[in-house]
Structure formats: structure tokens, C-alpha cells
Amino acid sequence: MRFFVLAVALFLSSSVFAQFTPQSVSMPKPAYPASQAGTQGHARISLKIHNDGTVSDVKALNATQPVFGDAAVAAAQQWRFKPWDVSADQPAVVEAQNDMIFTPTQPSKESVQLTFTQTTYQSCSALNEEVSQFRRDHPTRPLIDMKSFAITRVAVMFPALSGKKDYTEGLSKADELEKALPEIVQKCQANPKAAYADYLPRSTKLYL
């Protein structure tokens, strides 16, 4: 699934230097959080831009969901600007804010189905390795943020996103999937030769 992320122009925090705007060199867009499939969101960040072109103190001021704030901060930490000479009109550090709007686009049925099939029919042993790595890299994040589970959630939501089924029903099925994840992980760990799809909730399989 593809997503558009709009990074709105920088808003300088200090009116004293409002006439000076650092020139961007690289402003990577944030990755759309997979756990928020089908959800439009917003995040506002603050940051300091230094005259050598680097940034620091990137913080999320507010966000419709914490994951949108995290994604915005992670992207902004990679931003770089054209260095400038410090002068009376060009300070060594400029404080700024930025708004980012996360808007999901319509996924194609073919791309969703292909990725979903590749994901769900993987072996439990492969899923177990992914879970272990995910826990090491992201010990506090929910299981639904793991790639395989996030892809499954997108597939569950697709009928609703494409207008073929009720959106509220899609959200309900996605919630059922998320609640079932600990049990799915437990069963896969006990039966590594089985397939991940074997342990999806029956209601999820029927819905798909």
C-alpha cells in the first residue's frame, strides 16, 4: 500500500529572524505507520536548524496518534539544510515547526493480495524469527506493528477501504485479528513447521 505524506512548509518560531529561512537540501518524508492502515493523521514537530545544515532537538508537539508523531520525528532527524554564514540577520540556530499530514491512498487489489498471500503462507518458523527480531528491535511496540501482522491487517481492511464492505465491520475484523496475535504467536512457536495462515482466526479467513 502506498501513502502520501505532506510536509507543510517550515514555520519559523522566532519573529526576529522571520525573513531568514534555511534552504532545505534533503527532507525525507516519514514512513506511514502500517498499524494505521486506512487512517488519515497529522503531526506537528519542532526542531532546531543549525548553520552547518544539521538539525537537533526534534520533538513531536502533537499528533492525532503517537505513531504519527514518532514517524514524523524519525524523518525530521534525517533532514539537512544548506549551510549558511552566521550574521546579524542569519543566526547560528533557527527554531522551526513543521506540520505533516498522513493520507492513505487507495491500494490496488493485486498488490494487496500478492503481499498478503506471500505473508500468510510463510512457515511458522519464519514468523517466529520475525517475532524474535521485532521484540529485540522494538520491545515496547505492539505486535500489530510487526511487518507480517501489519500486512495482514491491511488485507483485512482492504474490502472496507475499496468500498466492498462496511468500514466499521472492517475495523471490527482488524481488532479481532490484533487480539488474536498473542495466541497466533504461541501456536506458531509450538508448531514451527505449520503455516502462519493455519492459525488465523476462522472469522478472519471467512472475511477475507
Rank of each mutant, 00 (worst) to 15 (best):
F149W: 03
A195Y: 08
L114D: 12
S203L: 06
T119W: 00
P22G: 00
S26W: 03
R153A: 11
K193S: 15
Q106L: 13
R141E: 11
V112M: 07
D52G: 14
Y121R: 11
P182L: 13
T54M: 07
V5I: 08
T103D: 15
P139T: 04
T54F: 08
A150G: 12
K109V: 09
A74R: 06
Y32K: 02
S148Y: 00
I151A: 13
D57C: 14
T54E: 13
Q40A: 15
G170W: 00
E129G: 08
T64W: 05
M100R: 11
K193N: 09
N62I: 05
S108E: 15
P66S: 14
D85C: 06
K147Q: 15
A76R: 01
V86E: 14
T21H: 04
E178W: 00
L171V: 11
T115M: 12
F102V: 05
I184C: 04
L208I: 06
F20Q: 02
A92Y: 06
A88F: 12
A96Q: 01
S123L: 07
F158N: 08
D85G: 09
Q97W: 12
K109M: 09
V86K: 11
G163F: 04
P201M: 01
E183F: 05
V8E: 15
T21L: 12
Q77H: 12
D70G: 11
S132G: 10
L10Q: 03
Y196I: 02
S13T: 08
S46K: 14
L181Y: 02
V58T: 04
R80F: 03
C188D: 05
